Structures are given as C-alpha cells and as structure tokens.
Simulated scan of single mutants.
Amino acid sequence: MIRDILVNLAQGVEKDVACDFAASLAATFGAHLTGLSVAYEIDVPPFYMGALPTDFIDAQVLENQAASEKASARFSASAAAAGISHEVRTLSASLGVAANSFAEMARLFDVTVVCQPDPDRPGPEEVISETVLMESGRAVLIVPYVQTKPFTAERAVVAWDGSRPAARALAEALPLLHRTKTVEVFRVTRGEDDDEAGAEVVRHLARHGLTAAVRKLPVGSGESVASAILNEVADQGADLVVMGGYGHSRLREMIIGGVTREILSTMTVPVLMAH
C-alpha cells in the first residue's frame, strides 16, 4: 500500500498541479503527504561575483525565500482542503544540491510526485525530475503540467520491454494498478519477438488479483517508440502509464534522445517511472 508520499513544490505559479495531484493521491490511499519547498540560492561562479551588485543578490535571495514561503502556504491549503495528514519541509540550497537532497529524501517514501517540465516556463523541474528518477531508487510519478483532474487510474497502460527499469516500475505500480478497472500490457516490438513475454506479465499480475490484456505493436526501425506508447494511451483513453525510465545510461539518452526523454517532453497523462 501507499502510505507515505513526497511531492516537490513548484514556485512562480498560481496553481501547483503536482501538489494538488499528490494531495488527491494521498486522500485516495489515506497516506501522509510531505511537501519539499526550496528557497533556491543564487549559484554564481566566483569570477562573476564582483560584477554583481550586493543589493541585487540580496534582493534575489529575499525573492526566492518569499517564493518558497508562498509555495509552502499553497501546499498547506491544498492538503488541508483534501483532509489529509501533511507536513512541509524547507531547504535553502542551489538547484544541484536541492535536486540531490530531494532524491535522497525520496528513498524513504513510497512514491514521489513531480511535475513535468513546462517548455514555455523554464524552471528547476527538469533537473529535479531526472535526478530523483535516477538517484532515489524509488518510483516517481510525473504529472503533466497541464493536468487538471485529481488522481484516477481507471485505465492503465503498462509499457513492457522486459528491462530491469520496467520490472521495477511494474512492481512499484501495483498499489495503483489495484485501483484500476482496465490494465493493458503494451509491447512495442521490432524484428524477432518473444510472444510469451506479454503473457508472463499477465500471469504475474493475475497472481496479484489483477486482470490484464496484452497488445503488441510492431514498429519499423525509423518509428518512435515513445510516439507508439502515447498513441496507445490516447486510443485507450488511459489515465496512467507505467514504464521504466532510462534503459540506457542517462548520458547516452541525453545524446541520442531516448524514449524516457521523449515521453517526459510529450506526455499527456501521469506517468509512473522507475529506474
């Protein structure tokens, strides 16, 4: 069961979609919700320090502190409205230190909720989400920045490729899958394929009291796996995707693209990932 949830609190927004989604998730499971609010420090290289006026730095520090306090207050109001047990933790740190600290915190939570990076509003979300996914060792639930609905998981698509990250994601997603009405094991295949792989996933889920169907979609070498997954999500009207994150090294994924990065940039429903 999910009893302990962590969420990263957004700043500079009127509505924190990850915060509200995490509150609804906690209410569904009767879980405790912890929000982390960061007052980001200005990370200025030493050779630039002399070029920045002291009053500018002081003003920026005060602005970031105020933004953190506003995020904390918004979180407390959202959690109180949901009627859940909650607490706020605060941290003053640079983005890199904050991301690593958040990942370390996440190791002692059942699931961590973060927001998808918004390409029209650059912020810390991309660094936070990638770091917690790679370094926490736990499941990460990424919420689209356009999310409006509270948590629901009536129809889930499990993107299965047989990899270690996919196996971790499936195991961590079991409490969520028990809330669904329909589970589909979706397999994107290229070339020769093991027809029994999907059936083995269905067998495993059946032992957990879950009924699932398998759908296999062959794609050509030039076709996008991420697009195939997202198209299936749209076709099925799914409201949750479960998949492994970063099957290759993060550096390689950053250089050549990769399914994880493409999903993170184009996802339209919440995605539970694990590495």
Results as ranks from 00 to 15, higher is better:
residue 52 L to P: 03
residue 113 V to Q: 07
residue 95 L to K: 12
residue 73 A to I: 07
residue 158 V to Q: 05
residue 185 V to D: 05
residue 124 P to S: 11
residue 183 V to F: 14
residue 169 A to K: 11
residue 7 V to H: 04
residue 184 E to D: 13
residue 268 T to W: 01
residue 137 G to P: 02
residue 51 A to V: 15
residue 259 V to N: 08
residue 31 A to Y: 01
residue 217 L to V: 11
residue 127 V to K: 13
residue 165 P to L: 05
residue 64 N to Q: 15
residue 157 V to M: 03
residue 231 N to G: 07
residue 271 V to F: 02
residue 93 A to R: 05
residue 52 L to V: 15
residue 146 V to Q: 14
residue 44 V to G: 00
residue 149 K to L: 12
residue 116 Q to H: 05
residue 143 V to E: 07
residue 116 Q to M: 06
residue 255 I to G: 13
residue 165 P to I: 00
residue 46 P to F: 15
residue 35 G to F: 00
residue 236 Q to E: 09
residue 96 G to D: 04
residue 190 R to W: 02
residue 248 H to Q: 15
residue 237 G to H: 07
residue 93 A to K: 03
residue 160 W to V: 04
residue 253 E to R: 09
residue 204 H to A: 05
residue 101 S to H: 07
residue 210 L to T: 08
residue 132 V to I: 14
residue 120 D to P: 01
residue 230 L to Q: 02
residue 16 D to C: 08
residue 43 D to S: 04
residue 72 S to M: 11
residue 190 R to L: 12
residue 51 A to L: 10
residue 148 T to P: 08
residue 5 I to L: 07
residue 33 L to P: 05
residue 113 V to D: 09
residue 106 A to S: 09
residue 153 A to C: 12
residue 79 A to E: 03
residue 87 E to L: 04
residue 212 A to T: 04
residue 134 M to H: 02
residue 108 L to F: 13
residue 215 R to H: 12
residue 93 A to N: 04
residue 125 E to G: 02
residue 270 P to R: 00
residue 139 A to H: 03
residue 96 G to T: 05
residue 18 A to K: 02
residue 182 T to V: 15
residue 110 D to M: 09
residue 17 V to F: 00
residue 213 A to C: 02
residue 90 T to E: 06
residue 3 R to P: 10
residue 76 S to N: 14
residue 64 N to F: 10
residue 189 T to M: 01
residue 9 L to H: 12
residue 53 P to N: 14
residue 181 K to I: 13
residue 227 S to P: 00
residue 138 R to A: 07
residue 100 N to M: 12
residue 18 A to T: 08
residue 123 G to A: 10
residue 182 T to Y: 14
residue 39 A to L: 03
residue 150 P to A: 01
residue 216 K to D: 13
residue 120 D to M: 10
residue 8 N to I: 13
residue 235 D to C: 05
residue 173 A to G: 11
residue 3 R to C: 08
residue 222 G to M: 01
residue 41 E to H: 01
residue 115 C to A: 14
residue 243 M to L: 11
residue 47 F to Y: 13
residue 143 V to Y: 01
residue 143 V to D: 11
residue 109 F to S: 06
residue 181 K to Y: 14
residue 117 P to Q: 05
residue 208 H to P: 04
residue 167 A to C: 03
